[in-house]
Amino acid sequence: MNSKPVLTLEDAKNIVRAAEAEASRNSWRVVIAIVDDGGHLLYLQRNHDTQFGSVEIAIQKARAAVAFQRPTKVTEDAVLSGRLIHLALPGALPAEGGVPLVIDNRIVGGLGVSGVRSFEDGQIAQAGIAVFN
């Protein structure tokens, strides 16, 4: 039987704490979502005054990072360069802020951030994964 690394709830909380610290330093109100390797929500944090529309976007960014095994910025860059076929991919989200979470070269989950401009969501996500890697 094979074994695989697993993203724990404590891992998720540590990632979110680091991401939230970056958001707070910049006074950005965001939603931060963590999903497991199957795209199921493991942890979600929303600042009390963050637009509620960002809840689903953060979850979708995290799921897209897992489903396509790459940061959502890759899809955003593809669309911006004219490769519009990416818009037809089920579950693709062409907006920076979703990143896969990797342990031992295996994707164990995804992190999604939404609430500010796309590149700022990406900055927050990078702060979150920096404590995980």
Rank of each mutant, 00 (worst) to 15 (best):
L44A: 03
F119S: 11
P90N: 12
G115T: 02
I103S: 02
V66E: 04
V116F: 01
G53Y: 06
I59Q: 10
Q123A: 14
N105G: 12
R17W: 00
A125Y: 07
P94F: 09
I103N: 06
G91P: 08
G110W: 04
L9G: 00
D121H: 08
G110T: 07
V102S: 02
A12D: 05
T75K: 00
G112Q: 03
I15W: 04
A125T: 03
K4Y: 15
R83Q: 15
L7N: 09
A67V: 03
G82R: 02
Q60H: 14
P5D: 08
E10R: 10
V6I: 15
P71Y: 03
G110N: 11
I32H: 11
L111F: 12
S114F: 06
A18H: 04
T72D: 07
G112R: 03
E120R: 09
G109Q: 10
I57Q: 04
A65K: 02
V66Q: 04
A23N: 08
K61C: 10
Y43G: 00
D37E: 14
A62R: 05
V113N: 02
R29S: 09
N14C: 02
V31S: 13
L44S: 05
S114L: 02
A64L: 07
N133V: 08
Q126R: 15
V102A: 03
A23H: 04
V66N: 04
R29F: 09
A78V: 03
V30I: 13
R117G: 08
R70F: 01
L87D: 01
L111A: 07
A88H: 09
L111W: 04
T50G: 05
P94G: 09
A62I: 10
N26M: 11
N2T: 13
M1I: 10
A23P: 08
A58F: 01
D37Q: 14
S114H: 03
E22Y: 04
V102P: 06
A67Y: 02
A23Q: 02
I59N: 01
E22C: 13
Q69P: 04
Q126Y: 01
I107K: 09
G91R: 11
G109I: 09
E10W: 00
L7P: 01
A23G: 12
G39H: 05
A18N: 06
K73M: 12
T50A: 15
L44Q: 12
V16P: 01
R83K: 15
N2R: 13
V35G: 05
L89G: 00
D49K: 04
E76N: 06
G97W: 04
I15P: 02
S27E: 13
F119H: 13
A64R: 03
L84A: 12
T75C: 03
V35E: 01
L111M: 11
F132Q: 01
N14G: 06
S114E: 02
R83G: 00
F68Q: 07
V74C: 04
E120V: 07
R70D: 06
P71L: 02
